[in-house]
Protein backbone atom coordinates (compact mmCIF):
# COMPACT_ATOMS: atom_id res chain seq x y z
CA UNK A 1 0.00 0.00 0.00
CA UNK A 2 1.58 3.26 -1.14
CA UNK A 3 1.15 6.23 1.15
CA UNK A 4 1.44 9.17 -1.24
CA UNK A 5 -1.95 10.90 -1.20
CA UNK A 6 -1.25 13.43 -3.91
CA UNK A 7 -0.26 10.70 -6.33
CA UNK A 8 -3.35 8.69 -5.43
CA UNK A 9 -5.64 11.66 -6.02
CA UNK A 10 -3.95 12.54 -9.29
CA UNK A 11 -4.64 9.01 -10.51
CA UNK A 12 -8.25 8.78 -9.36
CA UNK A 13 -9.39 12.33 -9.99
CA UNK A 14 -9.82 12.25 -13.79
CA UNK A 15 -12.27 9.35 -13.64
CA UNK A 16 -14.10 10.76 -10.62
CA UNK A 17 -14.37 14.24 -12.12
CA UNK A 18 -15.49 12.81 -15.44
CA UNK A 19 -18.27 10.82 -13.79
CA UNK A 20 -19.25 13.81 -11.67
CA UNK A 21 -19.45 16.21 -14.62
CA UNK A 22 -21.07 13.83 -17.07
CA UNK A 23 -23.40 12.11 -14.65
CA UNK A 24 -23.86 13.80 -11.34
CA UNK A 25 -24.26 17.42 -12.43
CA UNK A 26 -26.65 17.12 -15.39
CA UNK A 27 -28.71 14.41 -13.71
CA UNK A 28 -28.96 16.49 -10.52
CA UNK A 29 -30.17 19.50 -12.52
CA UNK A 30 -32.70 17.31 -14.29
CA UNK A 31 -33.99 15.95 -11.00
CA UNK A 32 -34.30 19.45 -9.56
CA UNK A 33 -36.69 20.46 -12.37
CA UNK A 34 -39.49 18.45 -10.82
CA UNK A 35 -39.33 20.58 -7.67
CA UNK A 36 -38.83 23.98 -9.29
CA UNK A 37 -41.65 26.42 -9.88
CA UNK A 38 -41.75 30.08 -10.89
CA UNK A 39 -41.81 31.15 -7.24
CA UNK A 40 -39.55 28.67 -5.51
CA UNK A 41 -39.48 25.01 -4.58
CA UNK A 42 -42.53 22.83 -4.26
CA UNK A 43 -43.73 19.28 -4.56
CA UNK A 44 -46.89 20.36 -6.33
CA UNK A 45 -45.66 18.84 -9.59
CA UNK A 46 -45.39 15.48 -7.89
CA UNK A 47 -48.92 15.74 -6.55
CA UNK A 48 -50.16 16.68 -10.02
CA UNK A 49 -48.16 13.88 -11.59
CA UNK A 50 -49.54 11.20 -9.36
CA UNK A 51 -53.09 12.46 -9.58
CA UNK A 52 -53.18 11.77 -13.31
CA UNK A 53 -54.75 8.37 -14.01
CA UNK A 54 -52.39 7.61 -16.91
CA UNK A 55 -49.33 8.19 -14.75
CA UNK A 56 -50.77 6.09 -11.93
CA UNK A 57 -51.51 3.33 -14.39
CA UNK A 58 -48.01 3.40 -15.90
CA UNK A 59 -46.35 3.51 -12.51
CA UNK A 60 -48.37 0.58 -11.20
CA UNK A 61 -47.88 -1.36 -14.43
CA UNK A 62 -44.12 -0.88 -14.26
CA UNK A 63 -44.07 -2.10 -10.67
CA UNK A 64 -46.40 -4.99 -11.49
CA UNK A 65 -44.34 -6.09 -14.48
CA UNK A 66 -41.11 -5.75 -12.49
CA UNK A 67 -42.47 -7.90 -9.68
CA UNK A 68 -44.12 -10.58 -11.81
CA UNK A 69 -41.12 -10.90 -14.12
CA UNK A 70 -38.87 -11.24 -11.05
CA UNK A 71 -41.18 -13.78 -9.44
CA UNK A 72 -41.56 -15.96 -12.52
CA UNK A 73 -37.84 -15.64 -13.33
CA UNK A 74 -37.09 -16.87 -9.80
CA UNK A 75 -39.25 -19.97 -10.21
CA UNK A 76 -37.99 -20.88 -13.68
CA UNK A 77 -34.48 -19.83 -12.70
CA UNK A 78 -34.50 -22.16 -9.70
CA UNK A 79 -35.65 -25.12 -11.74
CA UNK A 80 -33.08 -24.41 -14.47
CA UNK A 81 -30.19 -23.64 -12.12
CA UNK A 82 -30.82 -26.78 -10.09
CA UNK A 83 -30.93 -28.85 -13.29
CA UNK A 84 -27.68 -27.28 -14.50
CA UNK A 85 -25.67 -27.80 -11.31
CA UNK A 86 -26.58 -31.48 -11.28
CA UNK A 87 -25.11 -31.95 -14.78
CA UNK A 88 -21.69 -33.57 -15.24
CA UNK A 89 -18.94 -30.89 -15.43
CA UNK A 90 -18.43 -31.01 -19.21
CA UNK A 91 -22.04 -30.45 -20.18
CA UNK A 92 -22.47 -28.02 -17.28
CA UNK A 93 -19.94 -25.59 -18.79
CA UNK A 94 -21.62 -25.77 -22.18
CA UNK A 95 -25.06 -25.27 -20.68
CA UNK A 96 -23.92 -22.20 -18.75
CA UNK A 97 -22.44 -20.88 -22.00
CA UNK A 98 -25.80 -21.34 -23.75
CA UNK A 99 -27.62 -19.54 -20.95
CA UNK A 100 -25.18 -16.62 -21.02
CA UNK A 101 -25.13 -16.40 -24.82
CA UNK A 102 -28.30 -14.28 -25.17
CA UNK A 103 -26.76 -11.62 -22.90
CA UNK A 104 -24.21 -10.88 -25.60
CA UNK A 105 -26.84 -10.38 -28.28
CA UNK A 106 -28.27 -6.93 -28.97
CA UNK A 107 -31.50 -6.52 -26.97
CA UNK A 108 -33.06 -4.93 -30.05
CA UNK A 109 -32.42 -8.11 -32.01
CA UNK A 110 -33.65 -10.30 -29.19
CA UNK A 111 -36.83 -8.33 -28.72
CA UNK A 112 -37.50 -8.06 -32.42
CA UNK A 113 -37.63 -11.85 -32.64
CA UNK A 114 -40.84 -11.79 -30.61
CA UNK A 115 -42.57 -9.85 -33.37
CA UNK A 116 -42.01 -12.85 -35.64
CA UNK A 117 -43.31 -15.18 -32.97
CA UNK A 118 -46.20 -13.22 -31.47
CA UNK A 119 -47.35 -11.23 -34.52
CA UNK A 120 -50.74 -11.64 -36.26
CA UNK A 121 -49.23 -14.17 -38.65
CA UNK A 122 -46.61 -15.34 -36.16
CA UNK A 123 -45.97 -18.92 -35.19
CA UNK A 124 -48.08 -18.79 -32.07
CA UNK A 125 -51.15 -17.64 -33.94
CA UNK A 126 -50.51 -20.12 -36.75
CA UNK A 127 -50.32 -22.91 -34.23
CA UNK A 128 -53.47 -21.78 -32.41
CA UNK A 129 -55.43 -21.59 -35.65
CA UNK A 130 -54.13 -24.91 -36.95
CA UNK A 131 -55.18 -26.65 -33.78
CA UNK A 132 -58.43 -24.81 -34.02
CA UNK A 133 -58.37 -23.07 -30.68
CA UNK A 134 -59.20 -19.74 -32.32
CA UNK A 135 -60.72 -18.76 -35.63
CA UNK A 136 -58.91 -15.48 -36.15
CA UNK A 137 -55.51 -14.32 -34.94
CA UNK A 138 -55.25 -13.40 -31.26
CA UNK A 139 -53.59 -10.09 -30.52
CA UNK A 140 -50.43 -10.62 -28.51
CA UNK A 141 -48.31 -7.73 -29.65
CA UNK A 142 -48.82 -4.45 -27.80
CA UNK A 143 -50.23 -6.23 -24.77
CA UNK A 144 -48.80 -6.49 -21.29
CA UNK A 145 -48.32 -10.21 -21.89
CA UNK A 146 -45.96 -9.54 -24.79
CA UNK A 147 -43.93 -7.10 -22.69
CA UNK A 148 -43.88 -9.62 -19.87
CA UNK A 149 -42.57 -12.38 -22.16
CA UNK A 150 -39.98 -10.06 -23.68
CA UNK A 151 -38.68 -8.92 -20.30
CA UNK A 152 -38.60 -12.44 -18.94
CA UNK A 153 -36.53 -13.63 -21.86
CA UNK A 154 -34.21 -10.65 -21.59
CA UNK A 155 -33.45 -11.05 -17.87
CA UNK A 156 -33.94 -14.74 -17.07
CA UNK A 157 -30.24 -15.51 -17.76
CA UNK A 158 -29.19 -13.11 -14.97
CA UNK A 159 -31.38 -14.99 -12.48
CA UNK A 160 -30.14 -18.39 -13.61
CA UNK A 161 -26.48 -17.35 -13.34
CA UNK A 162 -26.96 -15.89 -9.84
CA UNK A 163 -28.72 -19.03 -8.66
CA UNK A 164 -26.12 -21.33 -10.21
CA UNK A 165 -23.35 -19.66 -8.24
CA UNK A 166 -25.45 -19.82 -5.07
CA UNK A 167 -26.21 -23.51 -5.58
CA UNK A 168 -22.57 -24.29 -6.36
CA UNK A 169 -21.52 -22.78 -3.05
CA UNK A 170 -23.97 -24.99 -1.21
CA UNK A 171 -22.24 -27.16 1.40
CA UNK A 172 -21.58 -30.54 -0.17
CA UNK A 173 -24.10 -33.22 0.66
CA UNK A 174 -26.51 -30.78 2.34
CA UNK A 175 -29.36 -32.09 0.20
CA UNK A 176 -28.57 -35.83 0.58
CA UNK A 177 -28.12 -35.26 4.32
CA UNK A 178 -31.57 -33.72 4.59
CA UNK A 179 -33.03 -36.59 2.54
CA UNK A 180 -31.38 -39.15 4.79
CA UNK A 181 -32.85 -37.36 7.79
CA UNK A 182 -36.28 -37.97 6.29
CA UNK A 183 -37.16 -34.71 4.55
CA UNK A 184 -39.34 -34.91 1.45
CA UNK A 185 -38.49 -32.83 -1.61
CA UNK A 186 -40.74 -29.99 -0.60
CA UNK A 187 -39.13 -29.86 2.84
CA UNK A 188 -35.66 -30.07 1.31
CA UNK A 189 -36.43 -27.05 -0.83
CA UNK A 190 -38.13 -25.04 1.90
CA UNK A 191 -35.83 -25.84 4.82
CA UNK A 192 -32.45 -26.39 3.15
CA UNK A 193 -32.15 -25.05 -0.39
CA UNK A 194 -34.06 -21.83 -0.01
CA UNK A 195 -32.33 -20.54 3.16
CA UNK A 196 -28.91 -21.50 1.84
CA UNK A 197 -29.41 -19.83 -1.53
CA UNK A 198 -31.26 -16.75 -0.32
CA UNK A 199 -28.34 -14.50 -1.23
CA UNK A 200 -28.18 -15.68 -4.82
CA UNK A 201 -31.93 -15.29 -5.08
CA UNK A 202 -31.77 -11.71 -3.82
CA UNK A 203 -28.87 -10.83 -6.12
CA UNK A 204 -30.59 -12.34 -9.14
CA UNK A 205 -33.88 -10.78 -8.09
CA UNK A 206 -32.35 -7.33 -7.81
CA UNK A 207 -30.76 -7.59 -11.24
CA UNK A 208 -33.99 -8.77 -12.86
CA UNK A 209 -36.16 -6.26 -11.01
CA UNK A 210 -34.04 -3.18 -11.79
CA UNK A 211 -33.51 -4.41 -15.32
CA UNK A 212 -37.27 -4.71 -15.87
CA UNK A 213 -38.05 -1.36 -14.24
CA UNK A 214 -35.61 0.51 -16.42
CA UNK A 215 -36.17 -1.41 -19.63
CA UNK A 216 -36.82 0.70 -22.68
CA UNK A 217 -36.46 -1.50 -25.74
CA UNK A 218 -38.94 -4.21 -24.73
CA UNK A 219 -41.90 -1.95 -23.90
CA UNK A 220 -41.04 0.23 -26.89
CA UNK A 221 -41.12 -2.64 -29.39
CA UNK A 222 -43.62 -5.04 -27.80
CA UNK A 223 -45.79 -2.57 -25.89
CA UNK A 224 -45.82 0.53 -28.04
CA UNK A 225 -47.96 3.42 -26.87
CA UNK A 226 -50.67 1.05 -25.64
CA UNK A 227 -48.54 -0.54 -22.94
CA UNK A 228 -46.37 2.27 -21.63
CA UNK A 229 -43.82 1.66 -18.91
CA UNK A 230 -41.97 4.39 -17.02
CA UNK A 231 -39.12 4.68 -19.52
CA UNK A 232 -41.34 4.75 -22.58
CA UNK A 233 -43.61 7.23 -20.80
CA UNK A 234 -40.59 9.42 -20.11
CA UNK A 235 -39.59 9.27 -23.78
CA UNK A 236 -43.13 10.14 -24.83
CA UNK A 237 -43.39 13.02 -22.35
CA UNK A 238 -40.21 14.55 -23.77
CA UNK A 239 -40.69 13.94 -27.47
CA UNK A 240 -44.46 14.29 -27.78
CA UNK A 241 -45.56 16.51 -24.88
CA UNK A 242 -42.31 18.42 -24.36
CA UNK A 243 -43.02 17.99 -20.64
CA UNK A 244 -39.71 18.06 -18.82
CA UNK A 245 -41.28 18.27 -15.38
CA UNK A 246 -42.90 14.87 -15.85
CA UNK A 247 -39.64 13.56 -17.28
CA UNK A 248 -37.82 14.78 -14.19
CA UNK A 249 -40.32 13.12 -11.88
CA UNK A 250 -40.12 9.81 -13.74
CA UNK A 251 -36.34 10.05 -13.66
CA UNK A 252 -36.36 10.46 -9.89
CA UNK A 253 -38.73 7.52 -9.45
CA UNK A 254 -36.51 5.33 -11.62
CA UNK A 255 -33.32 6.39 -9.86
CA UNK A 256 -34.81 5.90 -6.40
CA UNK A 257 -36.06 2.42 -7.21
CA UNK A 258 -32.78 1.49 -8.87
CA UNK A 259 -30.77 2.89 -5.95
CA UNK A 260 -32.88 1.11 -3.37
CA UNK A 261 -32.39 -2.20 -5.15
CA UNK A 262 -28.64 -1.63 -5.50
CA UNK A 263 -28.21 -0.66 -1.86
CA UNK A 264 -30.03 -3.82 -0.87
CA UNK A 265 -27.70 -5.78 -3.15
CA UNK A 266 -24.59 -4.17 -1.71
CA UNK A 267 -25.80 -4.77 1.86
CA UNK A 268 -26.14 -8.44 1.12
CA UNK A 269 -22.80 -8.62 -0.68
CA UNK A 270 -20.98 -6.91 2.20
CA UNK A 271 -22.75 -9.03 4.80
CA UNK A 272 -21.39 -12.05 2.99
CA UNK A 273 -17.85 -10.65 2.78
CA UNK A 274 -17.74 -9.79 6.47
CA UNK A 275 -18.67 -13.34 7.42
Amino acid sequence: MFQNRTEALALALPAALFAAIVFLVPVAILLSEGFRTADGWSIQAYIDFFSMPLNQKVFLRTLRLGLTVTFVAAIIGYAAAYAIVTLPPSSKGKMIGLVVLPLMISPVARTYAWIVILGRTGIVNQALMTVGLTDGPVRFLFTETAVFIGLLQLFLPLMIISLISALENLPRDAVPAARVLGANWFQVFWKVLLPLTREGLVIGGTLVFTGSLTAYITPAILGGSKVLMLETLLYQQVTVANNFVSASIIALILILMSFAANILLRRIASARNSK
Binding site: M1, F2, N4, V22, P26, V27, T214, L234, S258, N262
Partner: peptide, 29 residues
Protein backbone atom coordinates in the same frame (compact mmCIF):
# COMPACT_ATOMS: atom_id res chain seq x y z
CA UNK B 1 -2.62 0.29 -4.32
CA UNK B 2 -2.90 3.59 -2.48
CA UNK B 3 -4.49 4.83 0.66
CA UNK B 4 -6.82 7.00 -1.36
CA UNK B 5 -8.58 9.82 0.48
CA UNK B 6 -12.28 9.65 -0.34
CA UNK B 7 -11.96 6.22 -1.92
CA UNK B 8 -15.64 5.54 -1.22
CA UNK B 9 -16.71 8.72 -3.05
CA UNK B 10 -14.59 7.80 -6.05
CA UNK B 11 -16.03 4.29 -6.06
CA UNK B 12 -19.54 5.73 -5.85
CA UNK B 13 -18.95 8.21 -8.67
CA UNK B 14 -17.49 5.72 -11.11
CA UNK B 15 -20.24 3.19 -10.38
CA UNK B 16 -23.04 5.77 -10.89
CA UNK B 17 -23.58 4.88 -14.55
CA UNK B 18 -24.76 1.41 -13.50
CA UNK B 19 -27.32 2.81 -11.09
CA UNK B 20 -28.66 5.73 -13.12
CA UNK B 21 -30.77 4.55 -16.06
CA UNK B 22 -29.21 5.50 -19.39
CA UNK B 23 -32.25 7.27 -20.77
CA UNK B 24 -32.01 9.85 -17.97
CA UNK B 25 -28.35 10.52 -18.66
CA UNK B 26 -29.01 10.94 -22.35
CA UNK B 27 -31.82 13.39 -21.65
CA UNK B 28 -29.81 15.33 -19.06
CA UNK B 29 -26.82 15.66 -21.38
Amino acid sequence: RYKLPGAETVRFLVSLPIVVPGIIVGLAL
